[in-house]
Amino acid sequence: MSEFNPTVARGRDSVLSTNKVIRNTYILLSMTLVFSAVMAAIGMSMNLSSGSSMMMSLGALGLIWLVLPRFENSTGGIVVVFAISGLLGMGLGPMLNYYMAMANGPQLVGTALGGTGVIFLGLSGYALTTRKDFSFMGGFLFVGLLVVFGAMIANLFFAIPALALAVSAGIILLMSGLILYDTSRMIHGGETNYIRATVGLYLSIYNLFISLLHILGALSGDD
């Protein structure tokens, strides 16, 4: 009766490890989001320039590219994740100050924040409850990101407002797809490292918020 069944045991282990990755990812993600919000508030109060904001974003990018891969399998990775979210959060300060100075600024920022939360929770809930495998979206999402980066480079020099709006709309769709993709990868064992999973989801939420704020700011009718 107590015969060892490796398939069942492995299956149960796999489910337990998947649940552990999901739980750890959401715990770390919620902590980094709170930390990021605190750093954004500090960045706003310090009245940082847009140049220093860009330096912080570049610093965060450097951490993601060069430092995170070395620490992602150790507890030091958690410190790196907080450093990334802290830099990106503080870098939001000047942009938030700009929008808050608009007549309906607090409403815009609040709506973008709430909207980002609803979109993230809705998409994560959808992926977690349906347990569908969205790994087939990988090619489409990566090519979409390449197209968006190309359009962003072009618009740096051409500065076409309609293209900037189209890029923001494209980023919102791509980040929504990436939330489905990343969540599904955690569920189906494609992502077993909660530090990497947290950074992926954090960046999706961060970009979603910025793009949503840009669209709401541009279409709010308050120039």
């Binding site: 409403q107 973008a112 709401l216």
Partner: peptide
């Protein structure tokens, strides 16, 4: 993703 698009249209109308 279609639901996200509709939700954003709703947010734009709201602001």
């Amino acid at each position: 993703i279609g639901a996200v698009v509709l939700f954003i249209v709703f947010l734009v109308m709201m602001v």
